[in-house]
Design a protein around this nucleic acid. Sequence first.
DNA 1: GCCCTCTGTCAGCTGAGTCTGACAGGGGAG
DNA 2: CTCCCCTGTCAGACTCAGCTGACAGAGGGC
Lengths: 112, 112
Amino acid sequence: MSGTSPTGDELVSLLAALASPHRLRILAAVARQRTYVSELARQLQMNRPLLYMHLQKLEAAGLVTGELVTAPDGSSVKYVQAVPFTVSLDLDAIALAAQNLTGSGPAAEQEK
Amino acid sequence: MSGTSPTGDELVSLLAALASPHRLRILAAVARQRTYVSELARQLQMNRPLLYMHLQKLEAAGLVTGELVTAPDGSSVKYVQAVPFTVSLDLDAIALAAQNLTGSGPAAEQEK
DNA sequence: GCCCTCTGTCAGCTGAGTCTGACAGGGGAG
DNA sequence: CTCCCCTGTCAGACTCAGCTGACAGAGGGC
């Protein structure tokens, strides 16, 4: 996934996932250290439900992975980890990605 | 602007500007050839007001430049042009950008 | 005079994204 | 039993981006 040229839709999803201050901060925090959700919520000072939503988006975009760990004492804790990636963005990449968007070309509207 | 590491806020703006199929298509079309607005609207088959909005966002993000040209016959035509840029995105860049977000650090809420 | 092309802005609708409080449940420690 | 910490999910409110049709104005060609 790192270095491959993504499809237009994937690019849009990826950029949308990253285009949020909260998510950027979450990613940064998680990249630095593997933490569990509640601790992360405390670090970033945000409500847990909100954090859950953002984590879902990041996970859907493949930027983080969640792992529910059941400790030896029985209590379960969800650890979150960042997934390394690399994307190079320039006009060429944009032009390339724009070619394969679902419903990209003009007159591509038939099954609607 | 190309190659410089943008601030967190700038990064978010840039990504937000790019995270749209329409804007990707507009950028691609404009990167290929310098065109004027109405012609572009015809190419991409979208309403002009909508195109205007997207162009404003792209222009605000510094990805395109508009130039209102008054032809020798007096009619004015607005030409749009893509601005070359390069951004490398990875975990390090994210972590770096997350540091300088307006209101990033915890306990940075004083003037509100 | 009428018709055409272009630019730009406006009010208004709709839907998605965001954020919050509250809830249900699992399990350990005092 | 009571308190605490953890994981999830939910409905509701609220904001904003996206999108549309309509309008005003400038100018050329017939």
